[in-house]
């Protein structure tokens, strides 16, 4: 009994010490979690896979994101991330100067027939227009009208091969710098998001053409995901079995910098 009480006292004392060190630890004791490939971080990141599976199970593949009334458009679409690739991408600057005359949106990879579309061809196809809320990973939201060709139509025209599991979206803009060379922006999605009825290759924003700061000439809208899953300045849509060979292999520019791949939360 005496031992038991001693142990209890010890336990209580130890836990009090542990709790107070936890409270004092707020400064930088957990900065190691920022290191890529830290085993603890890898473990914590598994929760993202759980979120992806849970959300796919809870929300039907065809369920639409909410669309808003015209009156909800109260401001321009806030530009963020890359807003002017003309600054550092010569090829893109030439495209803008030619009014996107030389622009081609290519559909490649694991398809029956590779396809290539001019902007005019895209604009002549049946379009979809939707007023949706853009939710940035930073926390802000902005409502705007997006107009474009459903991606599913382009994928059907090319004919997706059964081996394809993901779609990689290659972009003109290059981000970063400093010690490392700028990296090309890219994104990827599963086929559920790619074939979702609201997933469009958008060339129109609100009442006009898509401006450079928002991703001209074509931006992919994946409406059930955060803003970084809406790649701008897209030139190639590639169907792949795995996205491991691109960038650092995490499925996107921001994913290579630590964001979760699914981006649904």
């Amino acid at each position: 009994m005496a031992d038991l009480i001693l142990n209890r006292r010890r336990l209580i004392g130890l836990s009090a010490a542990g709790a107070s060190s936890l409270l004092l630890a707020g400064c930088n004791q957990f900065d190691f979690l920022a290191r890529r490939n830290d085993p603890v971080r890898d473990f914590l990141e598994r929760a993202n896979q759980l979120t992806y599976s849970a959300q796919r199970a809870l929300v039907g593949d065809q369920v639409l994101a909410r669309e808003f009334a015209e009156s909800e458009i109260r401001q321009g679409q806030r530009p963020n991330g890359s807003t002017d690739p003309r600054q550092n991408v010569e090829e893109y600057r030439a495209l803008v100067e030619s009014g996107f005359a030389g622009y081609r949106l290519r559909v490649t990879g694991l398809v029956e027939t590779e396809k290539s579309y001019t902007l005019a061809e895209l604009m002549n196809m049946p379009s979809r227009s939707q007023i949706t809320r853009h939710d940035c990973v930073e926390g802000w939201s902005c409502i705007a009208r997006w107009t474009g060709v459903p991606l599913a139509r382009l994928l059907d025209e090319a004919g997706v091969k059964p081996a394809a599991k993901f779609v990689v979206y290659h972009c003109y803009d290059r981000l970063g710098g400093g010690l490392s060379a700028p990296e090309a922006y890219y994104e990827s999605s599963d086929l559920i998001d790619a074939f979702h009825p609201q997933t469009i290759c958008a060339y129109g924003l609100n009442t006009g053409p898509l401006p450079v700061e928002n991703g001209a000439p074509v931006r992919i809208r994946i409406e059930r995901a955060l803003g970084y899953k809406q790649p701008k300045y897209v030139h190639t849509i590639e169907l792949v079995e795995s996205f491991a060979q691109y960038g650092l292999g995490q499925g996107g520019y921001w994913e290579d910098h630590g964001y979760d791949w699914y981006g649904g939360i």
């Binding site: 707020g26 400064c27 930088n28 957990f30 900065d31 979690l33 920022a34 971080r41 914590l44 990141e45 598994r46 929760a47 993202n48 759980l50 979120t51 990973v137 930073e138 921001w254 910098h257 630590g258 964001y259 979760d260 939360i265």
Partner: peptide, 24 residues
């Protein structure tokens, strides 16, 4: 301030990894 955040420097990506794990 940095003493009130994990990590102590600006790092939204890592903050989200930690937040969603402990959210579950």
């Amino acid at each position: 301030p940095g003493w009130a955040t994990i990590p102590s420097v600006r790092d939204l990506a890592t903050g989200r990894v930690v937040h969603f794990f402990f959210g579950w």
